[in-house]
């Protein structure tokens, strides 16, 4: 047994589809993404059809806990009067969370371990913050590049530094989620390969995979949390301008 631990990140198209000469073949990742969406939508639909009660049942309690928590994030980082961002933030959180956790099921795929997916999220959020910033403040938004109270000689240098730190935001957002998910799944794959290739002592790495799976579940939650926190922080930053 000598398998490449990165083998399970490879994607191969299932069948062939093309639209106006553009290759739109489906692959595993797309189906898993749809499954993630369907699970979030289905669970909330289930809670809604079971009926909302004043004294909530199990499902409703969990949903309320998450939603209260996310509302707290929006209140803290963006502001109480800006609750219109709450649906976006909640959708982002639940989608990333479901995609991360689906990836832990053996045989499925972690779409957040693809830089394309996390990069798309991050670039979308970055462009959105630019739109919000210019929409709210007009050209005054460029003032975000000049921190208050610095000597005039330093201004040209600070603008370069601020531009880099501004552009590093989507970059770090994308890389953080991608790297954490990829690293965890690679460790799992390596341990599995070890447990299959070793004789009786292979029980040990197999035991570790169980433990690492628990850790990965925590990482899945924490990465979804960090991604949403930072999204809130960035949106709040362009609204409040420091």
């Amino acid at each position: 047994m000598n398998e490449n631990p990165l083998h399970h990140f490879e994607l191969h198209p299932i069948g062939h589809l093309s639209l106006f000469g553009i290759d739109i073949s489906l692959n595993k990742a797309i189906f898993i993404m749809w499954a993630g969406l369907a699970i979030v939508f289905g669970l909330f639909l289930l809670i809604r059809t079971l009926g909302l009660r004043l004294v909530p049942g199990k499902m409703q309690s969990i949903a309320e806990m998450f939603l209260l928590f996310l509302r707290g994030l929006v209140d803290d980082f963006i502001g109480k009067e800006e609750r219109k961002f709450f649906p976006f933030v909640a959708a982002l959180f639940f989608f990333i969370l479901s995609c991360n956790t689906i990836g832990l099921i053996p045989g499925s795929y972690t779409i957040t371990s693809q830089l394309v997916v996390t990069g798309t999220f991050a670039i979308f959020i970055f462009i959105m913050t630019l739109f919000i910033g210019f929409g709210r403040h007009g050209l005054h938004f460029l003032g975000i590049l000049v921190p208050a109270g610095i000597p005039k000689i330093l201004i040209p240098m600070m603008i370069v530094i601020e531009i880099i730190s501004m552009l590093a935001r989507p970059f770090s957002l994308a890389v953080r989620l991608f790297a954490n998910m990829t690293a965890g799944h690679t460790i799992l794959a390596v341990l599995f390969a070890m447990s299959l290739s070793l004789p009786w002592i292979g029980v040990l790495p197999f035991g570790f995979t169980v433990a690492i799976n628990g850790l990965e579940l925590m990482v899945a939650f924490i990465q979804a949390y960090i991604f949403t926190t930072l999204t809130c922080f960035y949106i709040g930053d362009v609204i409040k301008m420091h």
Binding site: F171, S172, A179, T229
Partner: peptide
């Protein structure tokens, strides 16, 4: 605990990301 872990994951990557981007 949650806040601490959030900060830890944030600080590590932000330093590297900005340096690499530069």
């Amino acid at each position: 605990f949650r806040q601490g872990i959030g900060i830890a994951f944030r600080l590590g990557t932000e330093l590297v990301a900005a340096t690499m981007l530069g």
